[in-house]
């Protein structure tokens, strides 16, 4: 049972992690990103659409579907994030409002496009894109380690990709000049501009990256939770990622701990319900667990956190 909690927990935690890292990129550059929910949704939509297209027009692409999905989810998320970038970085919109606007736009646009594209291309009246099943694999030797072996059991392919992308993101964030400029832009953008770096470009890039990473998380949820893309993708996981990054104090390392906590708590809840032989009607109650936890965590940790200093400020070159 511990094993199930571990591998199911990881399958939930890793997509959340990559979405939260996306949020960290944006927020550490100084742009509040409440749009994660919409970005992960639009990313998942784009990825899923490309998967069904490939399936339809390129027979034989099926085994690579999940990789096609992930690649295009990142593209779609990144492109959609440009709206948030344009609005907040260049058009001086309120960052909170823009984030919420993106979420609502994403929900309505994907609902419309899914239905309309299904009708036009596949002649089907459906509000979903059916994805193939992502085969989970188990590493032969490592999985036999007691308890911890569960980490290497029933692994989704996207988990490996997420880990690699997360590592790369960490490297960019902590060690490269771009990462240094990004974090400085969230602390004192005027210092960055005076040092000859284009703050707006850095922030815009950060927001686009956050969209790409959220998209990757989104398609992973689509694969692991329902094996299709439908409006149910919008279940507040983007906001959960925000809670995780606040809990992790806008640091990638701490945020990893936060999402693991979320993931294990959630899978433990399901296992507990199963163990107590509760009927499936109680699923509704268990579903509230992550949200309740988020609220509690925010209550206990929000006092001590240190948000980036320039978070939410509209940056204006002329302002002194």
């Amino acid at each position: 049972m511990i094993e199930i909690i571990l591998y199911d927990g990881l399958a939930f935690a890793l997509p959340l992690l990559i979405i939260a890292i996306g949020g960290i990129f944006s927020e550490r550059s100084g742009i509040i990103n409440l749009a994660l929910e919409g970005l992960l949704g639009f990313g998942a939509f784009t990825g899923a659409f490309m998967v069904v297209m490939a399936d339809h027009f390129l027979p034989g692409s099926q085994p690579y579907g999940i990789y096609i999905g992930m690649a295009f989810a990142m593209v779609g998320g990144g492109l959609f994030a440009m709206i948030h970038g344009l609005l907040t970085v260049y058009y001086r919109a309120n960052q909170v409002i823009s984030g919420v606007v993106i979420n609502i736009l994403s929900m309505s646009l994907t609902a419309f496009l899914t239905r309309q594209l299904n009708a036009i291309i596949f002649n089907a009246a459906s509000n979903r894109f059916q994805l193939g099943v992502a085969d989970r694999f188990t590493l032969p030797l490592l999985s036999e380690i007691p308890v911890l072996g569960a980490v290497f059991t029933k692994v989704y392919p996207f988990q490996v990709v997420i880990l690699l992308v997360a590592l790369l993101a960490y490297l960019v964030f902590e060690k490269t000049p771009f990462g240094i400029h990004l974090k400085a832009s969230g602390d004192n953008p005027h210092a960055v501009e005076a040092a000859g770096v284009d703050v707006k470009r850095v922030r815009f890039a950060a927001v686009m990256i956050s969209g790409a990473l959220a998209g990757l998380g989104g398609i992973s949820f689509a694969y692991s939770i329902s094996a299709n893309f439908n409006p149910m993708i919008y279940m507040g996981y983007g906001y959960l990622a925000i809670a995780a990054l606040i809990f992790g104090n806008w640091q990638i390392g701490n945020t990893l701990l936060a999402v693991l906590f979320f993931g294990f708590a959630r899978s433990a809840g399901y296992e507990l319900a199963k163990a107590l032989e509760m009927s499936s009607t109680f699923n509704d109650i268990i579903m509230t667990l992550p949200y309740m936890l988020t609220l509690l965590i925010l209550i206990f940790f929000s006092k001590q956190n240190a948000a980036p200093r320039a978070l939410g400020e509209i940056y204006d070159k002329g302002k002194r």
Binding site: G236, I242, M287, T288, Y291, T294, L295, L298
Partner: peptide
């Protein structure tokens, strides 16, 4: 009291209420 972003907390409350 806790400086919790109201957008995040109201979404959480939304889902909690919806499921209950």
């Amino acid at each position: 009291r806790y400086n919790i972003n109201e957008v995040v907390s109201s979404i959480m409350v939304n889902y909690i209420l919806a499921y209950f």
